[in-house]
Design a protein around this nucleic acid. Structure first.
Lengths: 183, 183
DNA sequence: TGGCGACATGTCAACAGTGGAATGTAGGCT
DNA sequence: AGCCTACATTCCACTGTTGACATGTCGCCA
């Protein structure tokens, strides 16, 4: 049920159409809570039925501008302050780690190496984005920068872990070799 | 479609019933890829239809032991080596950060403070788990320890970030106060 | 003025995940 | 012998997510 709160959150800083929201989802929320167009329009409909948003204006091409209502603001506030964020986040990246034993050591190392590279790339992309964003003036909201910092730290941790884990595979191999000799 | 690979991965180290697998999901995979009983049994059925697993033995109480087939092993290997892990992971924790502006500074700080505390608790629980696991002998597979280390690092990063962000809220407040004075 | 690209919304089928209910059996303890 | 617990499976309704398809319009530029 977080899509609905993402929409309420976006509308909390001003009215927008489904189309507008879709753009914002693609740009700023893409790495946190991606949403497709079908989902978005459907959610706007449900939100309107529930009285959390209302059509504030109609424009050309059937454009409907939605604005958040007081009930919507209350719901958003409630979600922000009273609802515990989910504690588990599924990760197919980590799921594979559990089964690394089905690969041979070279493949396992290669998997971890790729994780490190991907994390490093994402880290550098975010660093560049921050550069870009802090230079211009008003830019991404202040809170967007907190999220960006999270991404920076997270990708760095991920990269370092993957590099460590890759070396760990070697150490495991060495350990098993010794055991074979002593057997 | 990762549930199916989680099941294949578990079956790759030996046959098990749906009930057995459910236990394993609750214990070792709970933090990586949680699954419910209904999902599991349904997936086992589909996997059997697809020829990736087969009923190896039937036991008391209608127990069916499933074993992975060669086709299943091939599918698992393919998924491990050829399929790119998802790069985005939805996070309602981070989604809220984007909208921290709708809260007043006290509430925002409190939100971040809770995140730091939860992360710290989880960190300590994992540290204890590792203690427990590395003391006994064979324990969690070696690769499980890589995942555990990931959790340790991730929770530490999360805690540190949340503590930093909490202070950042103060700095933002101070900055805006100065601006008000100069206006 | 003709057409293209961006604007804009809506619908549908399929799959994935959640939570709960129903049902029944085997084995161990008293 | 009876009962309780753990074992074990199946089904269902609901929600959330994806991707594709369908449809139409406005405004600008050649």
């Amino acid at each position: 049920m977080s899509l609905r709160h993402a929409v309420l959150g976006l509308l909390s800083s001003g009215p927008a159409s489904g189309y507008d929201l879709l753009k914002i989802f693609e740009i700023s929320l893409a790495n946190v809570w991606p949403a497709t167009q079908s989902q978005l329009y459907a959610e706007l409909g449900r939100l309107a039925d529930a009285g959390f948003v209302a059509v504030a204006a109609e424009g050309p091409r059937g454009r409907k501008e939605y604005a958040i209502t007081d009930a919507g603001r209350a719901e958003l506030h409630h979600w922000m302050t009273e609802v515990e964020p989910a504690q588990v986040n599924r990760s197919d990246m980590l799921l594979r780690v559990f089964f690394l034993g089905v690969l041979d050591p070279d493949e396992a190392r290669s998997y971890l190496h790729s994780r490190a590279e991907v994390a490093d790339q994402r880290h550098r992309a975010l660093a560049e984005l921050r550069e870009f964003v802090t230079q211009g003036d008003d830019p991404l909201s202040v809170y967007g920068l907190l999220a960006l910092e999270w991404g920076l730290r997270f990708t760095a941790t991920q990269r370092d872990w993957a590099e460590w884990a890759e070396q760990e595979i070697d150490r495991i191999g060495a350990r098993e070799d010794r055991r074979e000799v002593s057997d």
